[in-house]
Design a protein around this nucleic acid. Structure first.
Lengths: 356, 356
DNA sequence: TCTACGATTTGGATCAATCCAAAAACAAAA
DNA sequence: TTTTGTTTTTGGATTGATCCAAATCGTAGA
């Protein structure tokens, strides 16, 4: 038994382990482990010797095994509801950038706004023992989902939308304020009839926008109020316009749930023979890269997806490091990016948005 | 020692393990394991009993531990070079859809077209013991990267671009054919001077487009050839146009590396006071959702990102199941989506693209 | 009743790391 | 030289599942 080291060299390509490194460097398994984790305990000479052995044997760290004994997997779950939306592309890039600095990797899943799919993904990520989750809750998510995650002892940061009762961790944009900025601007231009297009009451991000809309109207003492709920797609924006413009009185400006709706609305106006920005002002939300294009260039409430992603990821890392710390809400301030579609600028064509 | 079961109940919330289920159901660890893996070996009655215990104790499968002993992690690495590009959003959604069916989860990383970042990500994914990798190689990737991955015994499917020598696994679009289709169409419209805008020679996807361009010109016996290399951004398209249109003779049509370049080119034409689709035809590549918008709507070579993603993921799963099987190339056929920017249609405005 | 055989079930070894209490090595003070 | 006190290093236990050869259970056939 102990007569000979049980070398299973018959097996093809057994992977190099800590044990092998230890033997090669003439130290113990534990010491090698300490070197790998950059512990200050090991003496400088030993460290160098071990590192040479690691290189020499072509060792590959096994994070799975480490995670089994330790408590970190250096892994984060990200669940969004529409990865094909350019907004989320930018946001995921931001998440990726923040995680990367800390050596974390992210699992990405796309719920397609289905709570059932979302639930499956969350369970799967739990099985993978992710250290935490970034969740953009699907529309119709049960409010107690956050309690469930808490009972799982799973750190969770909600992003852009939130469900359940505070306190919870959240990163997003101040939609209410953003809508306020846009309306202030329109009012300053002389608009008095401003409609709001798009959104379902199913989640917080819509409620916040609507609240901002009503508050701003009240603040300016405007009587006209027109709020049309709908999907938040180009098509929805396109299809809402004809009926809306046929009303009497018709609005002179439309504020849209996001840029996609705004693009659709501009298309709808053109179809009616009206010029967006002259005959009717249009403002979107998100300030996607393509907002600067189009004819006219779209004025939009910039919600900074990349920054939101970064903040969310950073918050998640903080929470993982300190699970019982006070919950945080990171709410970024939006900025109104004025272009031509609200009739404020005279420049007929501007250069494309500056690239990142 | 063996006098009493070593219950470490002093520790707060030790997680439920196979052992606990086994005790609760009155069977062995092994049997529970078989139930979890849906083995046909276990008797129906036993299976039900065990499943009840699993529910009762709130057991969570530990995939990390399973991966350590077994050989699958049910995990795939995905490395793209620009997740903020809407094309990749759609592609990632396709990957996600295909993986999800098989219970796989994906790690996503964004190389930002940097080979160094890409290398770090690949190493990290290797440490996480992903079962395979989907790689959209960064520009400037060393051709021997694929050999390295092979020496790691890491199944790898290249997507959209490829480096190294065949045979390799690859999923993408037939860019050469796509460009051919577009030129056929333009020639049928009477165009004789067709320029190609954008791309760097750094990767296969550009070479294939250029090859398609030259071949198609030759096929139609056209003498005019103008190929401008550049970044593949809106800005690049925008900035190339003035000089190009000032040439004598100027092209009557421009074919663009992707839709972003095409959007920029259209903007550039407008800046010069020309109407895209009337004064100069513009065709893009990818057929992003926003191609249907804009003024005029953009004619584009549809490269079906969602389908490419799905095919790539499926191929990866096949390769994981059969590492030594013959390498495969899945090359989808593009389709020319004719709209207004090439001057072929009379419809001034069309409905937005049908939603998915 | 005994044997054989297929259908189930099982315990011990294993995967590759970390944790932790204790040992060893070394230096400085008594 | 012994004692004390730091640094470093170590081996055994542990993590939670799978693998595999062997044991057990039923039951049909001799």
């Amino acid at each position: 038994m102990s007569q000979d080291t049980p070398r299973p060299d018959s097996r093809a390509s057994r992977s190099v382990t800590l044990q092998d490194i230890a033997a090669h460097a003439g130290v113990s398994r534990s010491t090698v482990s300490l070197v790998l984790r950059e512990s200050p305990l090991v003496a400088e000479g030993t460290r160098r010797r071990v590192q040479r052995s690691i290189k020499a044997l072509g060792y590959v760290y096994n994070r799975g095994a480490a995670a089994l004994r330790g408590q970190r997997t250096a892994t984060l779950g990200v669940v969004v509801y529409d990865i094909a939306n350019p907004f989320f592309g930018a946001m995921v890039a931001g998440i990726d950038a923040a995680l990367n600095r800390e050596g974390y990797v992210s699992f990405l899943a796309n719920s397609e706004d289905s709570p059932a799919r979302q639930q499956r993904f969350l369970e799967r990520m739990r099985e993978h023992r992710v250290d935490g989750i970034l969740l953009c809750p699907a529309e119709g998510t049960a409010p107690d989902l956050i309690d469930t995650l808490t009972s799982w002892q799973m750190p969770c940061v909600q992003v852009l939308r939130h469900v359940g009762e505070p306190p919870f961790d959240y990163a997003g944009t101040d939609f209410r304020r953003g809508v306020g900025l846009a309306i202030d601007h329109l009012v300053a231009q002389g608009h008095e009839r401003i409609a709001f297009l798009g959104g379902h009451i199913g989640h917080s991000a819509t409620r916040e926008r609507w609240q901002g809309y009503r508050e701003a109207l009240a603040r300016h003492g405007l009587a006209y109020q027109r709020l049309l709920r709908s999907d938040v797609t180009r098509r929805a924006g396109f299809e809402l316009i004809p009926a809306l413009m046929a009303e009497s009185p018709a609005p002179t400006a439309v504020l849209c749930h996001n840029d996609l709706v705004a693009f659709g609305a501009m298309l709808g106006l053109k179809r009616l023979g009206r010029v967006p920005g002259r005959d009717c002002a249009v403002i979107g939300t998100d300030d996607l890269e393509e907002a600067a294009l189009g004819d006219p260039a779209l004025t939009s409430i910039a919600t900074h997806p990349h920054a939101v992603g970064e903040e969310a990821a950073r918050l998640a890392l903080r929470r993982i490091g300190n699970p019982d710390g006070a919950r945080e809400q990171v709410v970024l301030s939006p900025r109104l990016q004025v272009r031509d579609s609200c009739g404020a600028l005279s420049t007929p064509l501007e250069s494309p948005a500056t690239t990142t």
